[in-house]
Amino acid sequence: MGDYTTQELLSIFAMQGFAGFSLFSVLLLMALGLAIIFGQMGVINMAHGEFMAVGAYTTYLMSAVSEKYFPGFIQYYFVFAIVFSFLIAGLLGYLAEFALIRHLYKRPLDTLLATWGLSLIMQQTFRSVFGAREVSPTLPDWLLGSYQPTDTIDIPLNGLFVLALTAIVTLGVFILMYRSSWGLRVRATTQNRVMSGAVGINTKKIDRLTFALGCGIAGIAGAAFTTIASTGPTTGSLYIVDTFMVVVFGGAGSLFGTIASAFSIAQAQSILEFFISGSMAKVMTLLTIVIFLMMRPEGLFSIKVRK
């Protein structure tokens, strides 16, 4: 570190820190959906990354269509793409729950295998439809360029946008889960399914909508992802382990834990990456978390649930 002046070092921290924010945003958006599905419902959805890819491909498709047929629309399509990504991924999630997941609630390990199978099928579908090459949508002008508070600091606008989007979605999830009567029903179902059914909550419907919501948020994550990197058929599977780690590390069932854990994992990895090689940064981060989880299996923050 000796070769850098303090000024430069601070700039590096600021910029790497901001790169960490972009990773944090994607991880958190992915993890929010998974925290709902895994944390609340206890379903291990290995196809979660593929639902993110659904969102990313939806965005790409909308960009391609508006570029070709409505060139004037290209500045605005992205906002609609986020909504559509949410709806399409959510709809697919709804179908997956109906066809597959609901039969397996009592066998969590088998859900893992079945959703892994689902993820393989989805990956191959992406490959057959969009090709094996990575694609990326044409971004509207207002997402390009960067913001320069000083000479040495350079913060990309797309990163700022994704961060803002993440904040909005997180707030939305918080209100939905903790401040709405629907969220109350979801949490009641998690804590005591039989009792919730007895007081008149339609637990099956709650399950299906919760799963769909989780997948829909993964779709938003996909739309956000397209502004940062290009999408390939296996993009989703690259993030799935990290996402599970975020949820487990944060403590399943705790929204605040998920945010804290996504933040610390992304920042640790991003700042370490500048000083040691990317692969070692990843190894160090993962290893720290595994050791932490071995010491404290319930994660950073945990809510007490009677089982």
Partner: peptide, 17 residues
């Protein structure tokens, strides 16, 4: 090769279900 992942995925689901 394109069919294999479909089959493999289907196999996972079929075995479990």
């Amino acid at each position: 090769p394109e069919v294999w992942l479909f089959l493999m995925g289907g196999l996972f689901i079929a075995v479990v279900m």
